[in-house]
């Protein structure tokens, strides 16, 4: 008896073919797609109040997280700060510049981005503010070393070991730091600065409107629009906005599922003159008493 070799396909084969040729690759594709192309995110980091060791650490950790997370395609820095330590401001500037090499960084100023805070912002691709935000104060503030003396019972191996240097030398160091600040701003703004160094050296605080006229910022928009602008620069759509702080520090301080609420800005604390400032160089706005 002869075997039936009709071209009729058995249902089993059809089912197997459907699974193998359609469902399996589709399932694999659907599984792999979010991993290969995760939903892009715009990370939001905040610089609030003084720039010192803790704020610098917090921000650099968030930027490091953004750089290592493939989903994060842009970073927005929301700034409310009078600046602070010169070295920490420079650390933030360099870290933002480093991040900018990998993804767009947009800075947006709420109330105040003065001195070291603007120094950091200058490293971003673009800077935005509100019309009456306070922007600028490009300069250095530092106390000079006191008069030098020597003591009978305290031996040092150099004339300035106990003082750091001469007063006159300190003046020139401070001036050089100011020149470096200006260079950093000019470098970061990359041709968009419209004011000359002599004018910026006055270290004035400008409103957002003035800052725009001087090329210190790129526009007057809301933080939401700044996030959209960061997304545009990153070339992404349908993105998710994430706060970087809880992501960078999840587990250390609070569980990741916890809804993070950035603390509100206390204006009084923001504008307050610092107390007990240790000796050193600062990129910080310090408002002196009004009747001065």
């Amino acid at each position: 008896m002869a075997e039936d070799r009709s071209p009729e396909r058995s249902p089993l084969r059809l089912i197997l073919a459907l699974i193998f040729l359609v469902l399996a690759p589709l399932a694999a594709g659907l599984y792999a797609a979010p991993r290969a192309v995760p939903q892009p995110q715009v990370g939001v980091a905040r610089l609030s109040y003084d720039i010192f060791s803790q704020t610098t650490f917090d921000l650099t950790e968030q930027l490091a997280y953004a750089r290592q997370d493939p989903a994060i395609k842009a970073v927005v820095l929301i700034i409310n700060s009078p600046g602070g330590s010169a070295a920490y401001s420079e650390e933030l500037y360099l870290d933002v510049l480093n991040t900018r090499g990998e993804m767009p960084v947009v800075a947006t100023i709420d109330l105040l981005a003065a001195s070291g805070a603007y120094y950091m912002a200058a490293a971003a691709d673009e800077i935005y503010a509100k019309p009456t935000s306070a922007v600028g104060s490009i300069g250095v503030i530092a106390s000079l070393p006191g008069a030098v003396f020597i003591e009978e019972e305290l031996l040092t191996t150099g004339p300035y070991k106990a003082f750091g240097g001469t007063r006159d030398g300190s003046v020139r160091q401070i001036e050089r730091a100011k020149l470096a600040f200006l260079e950093a701003v000019r470098n970061g703004r990359n041709g968009r600065l419209l004011a000359d160094d002599d004018f910026l050296s006055r270290a004035e605080i400008f409103t957002g409107v003035q800052a725009l006229e001087l090329g210190l910022i790129d526009g007057l928009i809301s933080n939401e629009e700044a996030i959209q602008r960061a997304a545009e620069l990153a070339g992404i759509a349908n993105y998710e906005v994430v706060e970087l702080y809880p992501l960078a520090f999840a587990g250390a301080e609070q569980p990741a599922f916890f809804q993070y609420e950035p603390p509100p800005i206390d204006s009084q604390k923001l504008w307050a003159a610092p107390t007990n400032l240790p000796p050193g160089m600062y990129y910080r706005y310090v408002e002196l008493p009004s009747n001065r």
Binding site: G29, A33, E232, L233, N238
Partner: peptide, 22 residues
């Protein structure tokens, strides 16, 4: 079918002609 979802996703999320950053 294998690559399609990824491509669709990419096209959904990314601009094929992004702004050139300075």
């Amino acid at each position: 079918l294998l690559v399609g979802p990824t491509a669709v996703r990419y096209l959904r999320f990314y601009d094929l002609n992004p702004i050139e950053r300075a």
